[in-house]
C-alpha cells in the first residue's frame, strides 16, 4: 500500500478546489474509493462515481422520467411514506416498493472493462464562494507511517497533540485512518475504540 498515490490525490483535490472545478477524477484503488466515500460521508464531496476517462453524464442531461409519473410517485409517498425505504424481500422479481412507485430509474455509467482505464470521478462542493474541501494533507508519509491508538485519537480529536500528530485544531477538521474495520474517520475510531494508521487530514 503506497501512500505516494494518496499524496498525489491530496494535492490534486486541493488544486482542483482552488481552480473551482465541479468534477474531477482520481485513479482508482480500494483505498482511494474508501477515502472518497469517507469524504462524501463527511460532506466534503457531493458525488463519487466510478467511470472511464470521460466524466459521467451529469444527472440533468440523462433521461428523465415523466413529470406525471413523478407526481404519482409523490402522491403515493405522501400517503404511504414507508415505500421510500424498501425493506421487504422482492416477490416474483419485483419488490413492493417497485409495485407501488413504479420502476426505479437507474442511470447507466460506462465503466471500462480494463481496470487501468477506470477513474474515480469526484464531485467537489462549494459554499458561499468558498470550497468546502480546501486543505488535504498526508499525516503518515510513505517513509514514515504513524499508527495511533484510540487513546491518542481521543487526545487528537480534543485538539491536543499526541504521538507527534498535531491535534485537530482547525474548525471542522477531519482525519482519516485505515483500521482493521476499514477506512474510518478519527472521531468514529474514538467512538469504536479503534486504533490504526493515520492517512490524511482534511479541513
Amino acid at each position: 500500500m503506497s501512500l505516494v498515490n494518496l499524496a498525489h490525490v491530496c494535492s490534486h483535490l486541493q488544486n482542483a478546489s482552488k481552480a473551482r472545478l465541479g468534477l474531477t477524477s482520481i485513479p482508482v484503488s480500494k483505498m482511494h474509493v474508501n477515502i472518497a466515500l469517507g469524504l462524501q460521508r463527511e460532506g466534503f464531496l457531493s458525488s463519487v462515481t466510478l467511470g472511464g476517462s470521460a466524466p459521467p453524464r451529469p444527472f440533468l442531461l440523462q433521461a428523465q422520467a415523466d413529470p406525471e409519473q413523478f407526481e404519482k410517485m409523490a402522491e403515493t409517498l405522501k400517503v404511504e411514506p414507508w415505500h421510500a425505504y424498501p425493506t421487504e424481500a422482492p416477490t416474483k422479481g419485483k419488490s413492493n416498493t417497485e409495485l407501488a412507485l413504479g420502476k426505479e430509474q437507474v442511470h447507466e455509467v460506462h465503466v471500462p472493462e480494463n481496470p487501468a482505464r477506470r477513474r474515480l470521478w469526484l464531485g467537489l462542493k462549494y459554499w458561499q464562494n468558498e470550497p468546502v474541501l480546501k486543505n488535504m494533507k498526508l499525516v503518515s508519509k510513505p517513509t514514515r507511517r504513524i499508527w495511533l491508538t484510540s487513546e491518542d485519537l481521543g487526545r487528537i480529536t480534543r485538539t491536543r497533540e499526541s504521538s507527534y500528530v498535531k491535534g485537530l485544531t482547525h474548525p471542522g477538521e477531519c482525519m482519516f485512518l485505515t483500521t482493521d474495520r476499514g477506512i474510518l474517520e478519527a472521531r468514529e475510531c474514538v467512538e469504536r475504540r479503534l486504533g490504526g494508521m493515520a492517512l490524511c487530514r482534511v479541513w
Binding site: E42, G43, F44, K125, W127, Q128, E130, V132, P171, G172
Partner: peptide, 14 residues
C-alpha cells in the same frame, strides 16, 4: 474572516 462551525456544517450538509 473566520469560518464559523455553523457555516461549515451547513456547507457539508451536516
Amino acid at each position: 474572516n473566520q469560518k464559523l462551525p455553523d457555516e461549515i456544517a451547513r456547507a457539508r450538509g451536516k
